[in-house]
Amino acid sequence: MVKQLSIFSFLALLMFSCGQSPQKDIKIDGSSTVYPITEAVAEEYRSEAPGSRVTVGVSGTGGGFKQFLRGETVINNASRSIKPSEVQLAEENNIGYVQLSVAYDGIAVVLHPDNDWVDHFTVEELKKIWEPDAQNTITKWSQIRPEWPDEEIHLFGPGIASGTYDYFTDAIVGESGASRGDYTASEDDNVLVQGVSTDKSAVGFFGLAYYEENADKLRLAAVDNGEGAPVKPSLETVKDGTYAPLSRPLFIYVSSEGAKRKSVQDFVNFYLDNAGSLATSVGYIPMPEEEYANQQEKFDTFVKEHN
């Protein structure tokens, strides 16, 4: 029992004696979509600044913002812009922030390889399939375009907690988070790949990187936004903005507290210098060079304001 008592007091001591040393650490959390890019940057940064301690979590964009806006992290990975409710929280907690774009991601609309009737969807058609009113009424391909077969349509998409889902519904239905509920949802895009690749009457959407890794099992649908010919997502069409509206920027948010620290400034500068090439290596699409220069300028101004 004496031994157990001593363990207890040891633990109690630890609790009160060990503070954290936040000055040295660069704590990052947020979107799992942006995670691979930030992980790649952090990995490269190890050789650039061997003494640095950069950690990255995957709480999701929203979960990450909760920590970011309490000052628990200095950088937040985000696959969408900050929401009005989060802006309000930032003001209440007196936390300044800057939004920096780091790469693009295309959202691919995919089909089973044996689907030979669809060449492209118009944005209107996608809306007709996915809007809330479509639930239980749009159930057959022929309802979308009369020449398509009179067969059931099976839908696959990310779950409602995902930033990809938020972006897709915003771009297609016109309201973030509004969609039918009767589709197969999964937070794991590999499950969606599996679903669409084994179901001839399936249509689904997810990040372009998941299509490219599974291009042999899936067929890509082009999207027609009414401005010229239908466009398929690719490195070029996402980068030059012709694959609209389903390409989106990915962000990191840096806090004013972070901007005051030299270590965070160095890391963000390194991030913006290398994001283009590193984003490509993990399956995302780099922004044009001048765009990175713009972001760098934006960050420099932000740093000046807070020092």
Partner: peptide, 20 residues
């Protein structure tokens, strides 16, 4: 542990119980 805030990328082995 995800809720408590365990991370996905930690490039250093923890040295004490207060480390991430």
């Amino acid at each position: 542990l995800i809720v408590v805030g365990a991370l996905a990328y930690v490039p250093f082995a923890p040295r004490g119980p207060m480390d991430e």
